[in-house]
Nucleic acid binder design. Structure first.
Lengths: 152, 152
DNA sequence: AAAATACTTTACGTTTACGTAAACTTTATC
DNA sequence: GATAAAGTTTACGTAAACGTAAAGTATTTT
């Protein structure tokens, strides 16, 4: 038994930092299924979870329709039909492959960022060195030609 | 000294399985900078690398303009200006944070897929069991009421 | 030289995921 | 009871990332 509470559209919007427009859009596209009190939407904790999943999906580069497909598939899976179960297992395997690809991409990106960062730091160090040499020269010059007397 | 070769638009398109339209679009958006022989585009191996990065970026949910920003930033970084170097380091740190978020998302998704898969297999096992019970009953019925003689 | 092939520019069309504005109801507050 | 606050529908607008078609050039093949 989840948190059981219900949510208004602006509660959800605020919590997940999206606009109400987006939430309504997700309903329009069949990703959320709030009930109504009068004409006002009432979201269940299931809707809340789904919203969270939608947003995570987006961060992972999934389109809304991809996410919707997963939702629908899962709902049909719950019906317990064998064909649907097998289909779901299949889909899960595909998604796993996608995730593997993403993990690879991320690992690659991290390696390249490592070398990029290293080069940056190296270049910076070089600059600092040059700066220090420069100030040394200046100090030397000051010693050679000391205290020019100020006058008004 | 990379592979040093140059590439036609269709070579690149074929290699990375994108349309020539896309490649031209990426140039239009300032992500690729092919030279020209007459009016025909000639892509360098640097362009090839960038195309690869563009596509990886897309898989990771980066927009073209995000990727372009990175390219531009990197190019300016190469100029060795201190301000640019610091800016790049900053940006790299931000991107790393993004990647961490993505890794979290992926880990979460994998966990949920694990439980989803487990439930599926369980449900399937239940179905199989019921099936076996069903056939047992049928076999029992056949034993009780054996060999109905066939006639024509 | 005619035809096929590969490339080009120009430009309008399309999908996704909302933004934004207008006009209206319902509920809470003064 | 007026007004503000939060919700609603309807509908047009927009940015991103191409698709697609038209019409032309350049080169290679037959």
């Amino acid at each position: 038994m989840d948190i059981k509470k219900t949510y208004s559209i602006s509660e959800l919007a605020k919590e997940f930092d999206v606009t109400t427009r987006s939430v309504r859009f997700y309903e329009d596209q069949g990703l959320l299924h709030p009930t109504r009190r009068g004409q006002t939407r009432i979201f269940s904790s299931k809707d809340r979870v789904r919203l969270k999943l939608i947003l995570r999906g987006k961060r992972m580069g999934f389109s809304l329709s991809e996410t919707k497909e997963l939702f629908d598939l899962w709902d049909e899976t719950l019906s317990g039909n064998e064909k649907q179960l097998l289909l779901m297992l299949n889909t899960l395997a595909n998604k796993r492959a996608q995730l593997e690809q993403q993990k690879n991409d991320i690992a690659q990106a991290e390696m390249e960022m490592d070398t990029a960062e290293a080069r940056c730091r190296e270049a910076l160090a070089d600059l600092q060195k040059k700066k220090r040499e420069q100030t040394k020269i200046q100090k030397a010059q000051i010693k050679e030609e000391p205290q020019p007397v100020e006058q008004k």
